[in-house]
């Protein structure tokens, strides 16, 4: 670390100070939201250190909109998408990694196109497809376009390719079929990749907004993000205390998970990014 420290072009004390200032600046908007959410409306923009703390804004937000339902919808969406992705991407990655077939290279290149042209860019046509399937305003309709993920296939294929063939052969001699080998050898050995991919997938779909906004139009299907935007836009006028509380509430599960598993999160994003 000391060797790394010296490479920075700024003196150590100045660098420490600069880091503090920048971090404080970065925390400012969040601190403001926290302050507003945990104090009575009267203190929303009035920074009095003696202001009483309260959880009332949270209970008001919780009662003012069906957040419990939104939480359920988001959980179902996130779990469903992830389960689908895990299964489909595992099978496809296994196919690409271990069962060479004529044209595999071309098909894989086509798969990778999705990294650039994501389903949420082709809004109109995908809306048409979902409508034709009768899935408008359903949680399945939000998730379906994302279930086959080029990114997941790519990540798992890389991992599977790194697993020594000898293990594969050994399992086959033991009498495993192709799916048995996948289940006994490849999946257990790819665990870190699954964790990384899972975290990225959950964060993406917990936070996704535009596509669910288009697809849903009722309380029973709206995920949290869309529910929050509806709540903040119409129901509340400008009671910032309640809106701040609702905002924090929707981000809380992911935020808490992040604070608890910081290292895993950062590593997952890293693994996921370096592709």
């Amino acid at each position: 670390m000391s060797g790394l420290g010296r490479s920075s072009p700024i003196g150590p004390a100045m660098a420490g100070l600069a880091a503090w200032l920048l971090a404080a600046l970065w925390l400012l908007p969040m601190a403001f939201a926290l302050w507003t959410a945990f104090h009575p409306s009267a203190f929303a923009a009035h920074f009095d250190p003696t202001a009483p703390l309260t959880l009332e804004n949270f209970s008001r937000a919780w009662e003012a909109a069906p957040f419990a339902r939104y939480f359920l919808n988001t959980s179902l969406l996130v779990a469903g998408v992830m389960a689908g992705q895990m299964i489909l991407c595992t099978l496809a990655a296994y196919g690409f990694a271990r069962f060479p077939f004529p044209g595999a290279g071309l098909v894989f290149a086509l798969v990778l196109m999705q990294l650039m042209i994501m389903p949420d860019l082709l809004l109109v046509e995908n809306y048409r497809t979902i409508k034709a399937l009768g899935l408008i305003d359903s949680i399945a309709g939000i998730g379906l376009p994302y279930v086959a993920s080029a990114f997941g296939i790519f990540l798992l294929r890389q991992t599977f390719k790194g697993i020594p063939r000898e293990l594969d052969d050994a399992a086959r001699i033991e009498g495993c079929g192709p799916l048995g080998v996948l289940w006994r050898v490849y999946i257990p050995l790819a665990r870190p990749t699954y964790v990384a991919y899972g975290l990225v997938s959950v964060s993406y779909h917990w936070n996704n907004f535009l596509w669910p906004l288009i697809i849903t139009n009722s309380v029973s299907t709206r995920p949290l993000t869309v529910g929050l935007s509806v709540f903040a836009a119409t129901d509340q006028g400008i009671d910032w205390s309640v809106i701040s509380a609702a905002t924090l509430m929707t981000a809380a599960p992911l935020l808490i998970a992040f604070l608890a598993f910081q290292r895993q999160f950062v590593n997952s994003f890293l693994r996921a990014g370096i592709r």
Binding site: A92, G95, F96, F99, F101, L110, L122, E125, T129, L144
Partner: peptide
């Protein structure tokens, strides 16, 4: 082997085509 390969990628690739490639062409 090739047959297995195709069968394994089929579900993912058909969904992918349905929500990425096909809509791109349709657009």
């Amino acid at each position: 082997n090739a047959l297995y390969g195709w069968l394994l990628i089929l579900p993912a690739v058909s969904l992918l085509a349905a929500f990425t490639h096909l809509p791109a062409v349709m657009t």
